[in-house]
């Protein structure tokens, strides 16, 4: 019988906090909601006045640029952002 191995990674809440901090550093006035959705998976809603007039891709690039470090490498704490919504206040 194959045994399932569960690798204990960082707690989702802790990673959510790091995501929030990283986005705050890049977009200081943004309102940020981070929802953990299973190990390494998160949903984000970011509201920022700076998104005004940008295409959806450009808005999302600003958020992804802020959290690249958390998503890079084989042991990245963030595997995937399942949903990213960017809003203008």
């Amino acid at each position: 019988m194959a045994l399932q191995i569960i690798n204990a990674g960082p707690e989702p809440e802790e990673v959510a906090g790091r995501i929030r901090e990283a986005i705050e550093a890049a977009l200081p006035d943004a309102r940020i909601e981070v929802l953990p959705r299973g190990p390494g998976h998160f949903e984000l809603t970011v509201t920022d006045a700076g998104f005004e007039g940008l295409s959806r891709v450009k808005q999302q690039q600003r958020v992804y640029a802020a959290i690249t470090e958390l998503m890079s490498g084989p042991n990245a704490p963030v595997h995937a952002i399942d949903r990213l919504e960017c809003r203008v206040p």
Binding site: V57, Q60, Q61, R62, Y64, S72, A80, I81
Partner: peptide, 24 residues
């Protein structure tokens, strides 16, 4: 593979570029 994610500020593959611009 790792470089294009940083280059585009986009965490997933595939990525399409047209005329030098990142499309999505």
């Amino acid at each position: 593979r790792e470089g294009i994610k940083v280059f585009s500020s986009w965490p997933t593959i595939p990525q399409l570029y047209v005329k030098g611009e990142f499309v999505g």
